[in-house]
Design a protein around this nucleic acid. Structure first.
Lengths: 346, 346
DNA sequence: CCGTTGATTGACAACGTTGTCTAGAGGCTA
DNA sequence: TAGCCTCTAGACAACGTTGTCAATCAACGG
């Protein structure tokens, strides 16, 4: 026991390697490798001896070395915008589920809506040689990814399209969903409808605005500039925008909220006002049905988006090389009441 | 160009290595390494040549090799129970934020409340040689982690304690929070209070039950067996439990919901009943203030828990070797109205 | 009894990086 | 000018694994 401590006892902070296991079991290195990986060509007796050594030493294969040797990491990266946003929970979960079913681990991080942080994170993942990436982009120029994609890292964009490169993309039907939402309000008698959305640099915000305008145009309704407010989704900003629209000389009689965060603030603002105002929100949220009035929404399906994206990714990893495709996941209007409030008489 | 394609052009699926960069720049391997890592001892001219070669080839350091060589992965693992549960969003985010500030990546996965899946996931992370682990345990025996901890993988448990091993732990004050919740109901005149909680094998469920009993005992109130229902948090089960308690000959006049999921279902059930019933929930949720009546809750602070856990973890990684410590994060009763409904007259 | 076959096993190189060590160039002092 | 020091640069081994290949051995057919 005085010679080499490894192979007999464990030192804190030092892990046994296959070499140690081999020494202890009195076999060759490659035999240990075979046992660890369940490869054939090992007699039951040898296998038992190796297994004993493994247990005795507390050996665990070092995947870093394995990855280096094999070239594949069996891990994929997920870059999203805010881990705390409820929209991403189911999406995250769906991606993880698919990854798991393919035996891959998920490495993730959030960009906090900051393009440079997105790039930093993505490149760190590439340096780790993840096999593929699912990205909810914060940036609008992804040419920095070109060398990585050329090098074989599969990449799928979700929720927003990639900027200046061609890649697989999974989006919600933002345009159609917004149209439905606004058409719903129009069908219930509204003529002056406000739209409060996210910053215009964000693709979804632009598409939803386009849907809003299309629905208004289809009904032959004019859109006053003061009815459209794009910008941060911070409560203050949303509150201010809503108040302005509702206190105008010719106030809007209904609001279309461009996303989750906006809807929640809108509900708060409307709850404080005496006169009921119709509201439809883009993106569903838990308890939307419990608020009074229950909130009518255009529901997205984040789990479906996640599954689709991860599916697309693993398709690529299996070597399928179609041209990049853009998938749109349909949205669904869920009428719960808040969209059916008729316009107040002037 | 007919000789070696590497070094001059890029082949799909093959990445340039430092060797290729060195060849192209006409320098030694180690010099490239120095430039890539910003080590001193390189003349500006040489550095420029190397940088040019790096850009031209689209080189990116292979972190797998680096990790193998250095022994540290600069990544930590986070194992939680359900990525889609809103409680874990802020926790996840907080852990990621701390990891990021330490230059580490976050690898995560969920156990789906399945002990064997937890173990599988944790060991996969150990094989990756993550530097540390933050675990929200699903299992109640963690001895399988002993060799890993001995080998130097720092480990912190969150939300629930580790089973049969001694390790750093960050918990909510489940007992105290539950006591506060029930005391609040008692203060508003309730004598018959039901408790609907999670499965008894889950530590938090047991602690909250203990708090419930303690508060009742402190007020000198008896607890009927039929007032306590522990089990799955699936809506059906919760609905059934609530209905039984409320339709009993001597019905409970208030409910204490053992977590988030239970509270939401309870709100639905109570909303369908003519006679108002008081309710306090453990764990806050978005929009709890918008439901009518607004829901009184005992709020946990998942972000605080995540920050604390990650902080503890990196403390260990910095080499501090105190005995394991157990930290309790206080809870806060947020009275919003639903807990102040007085008991109905019989 | 010998050559052949098949199964088991291990020696060795390689994956791409970094730490160590040494070589060489150039400048300084005595 | 010899001797020394500093600075830059590269050769080489090592990290722990897996793929390739060759060696050994028992069994078997002729």
């Amino acid at each position: 026991m005085t010679d080499t401590a490894r192979g007999t006892s464990r030192r804190y902070g030092t892990r046994p390697t296959m070499k140690d296991v081999a020494a202890r079991a009195g076999v060759g290195l490659k035999t240990v490798s075979r046992v660890v990986n369940g490869e054939p060509g090992v007699t039951p007796d040898t296998e038992r001896r190796v297994q004993e050594a493994i247990t005795a030493l507390g050996f665990r294969r070092n995947d870093s070395a394995r990855i280096l040797r094999k070239g594949r990491t069996a891990s994929i990266g997920l870059v999203l915008e805010d881990l705390a946003d409820p929209f991403y929970g189911p999406l995250n979960r769906a991606v993880e589920e698919v990854a798991r079913s393919h035996g891959a681990l998920l490495i993730n991080g959030s960009s906090a809506e900051d393009p440079s942080r997105e790039q930093e994170l993505v490149l760190a993942l590439c340096a780790r040689r993840v096999d593929g990436l699912v990205i909810i982009p914060a940036a609008d120029d992804h040419r920095y990814l070109e060398p990585e994609i050329t090098a074989g890292i599969a990449t799928v964009f979700v929720d927003r399209p990639a900027g200046r490169i061609d890649a697989d993309t999974v989006l919600s039907d933002n345009f159609g969903g917004a149209q439905d939402a606004v058409a719903h309000l129009i069908a219930h008698g509204h003529r002056r409808i406000g739209f409060i959305g996210d910053q215009p640099r964000i693709h979804t915000a632009r598409e939803r605005l386009r849907g809003y305008r299309a629905a208004m145009a289809a009904a032959g309704l004019p859109v006053d500039d003061s009815w459209v407010a794009l910008g941060s989704t911070a409560p203050d900003r949303v509150r201010a925008a809503a108040t302005t629209m509702l206190d105008a000389p010719e106030p809007v009689t209904a609001l279309f909220a461009g996303n989750n965060r906006v809807t929640v603030t809108a509900v708060r603002v409307l709850g404080e006002r005496p006169r009921p105002v119709a509201l439809v929100g883009f993106d569903d949220f838990e308890l939307a049905d419990l608020v009074r009035p229950a909130i009518t929404v255009v529901a997205q399906d984040p789990a479906h988006m996640g599954r689709t994206a991860a599916g697309l990714l693993f398709r690529r990893l299996d070597g399928i090389e179609d041209p990049p495709r853009r998938t749109e996941i349909p949205t669904r209007l869920i009428a719960r009441g808040s969209g059916e409030i008729p316009p107040a008489e002037d």
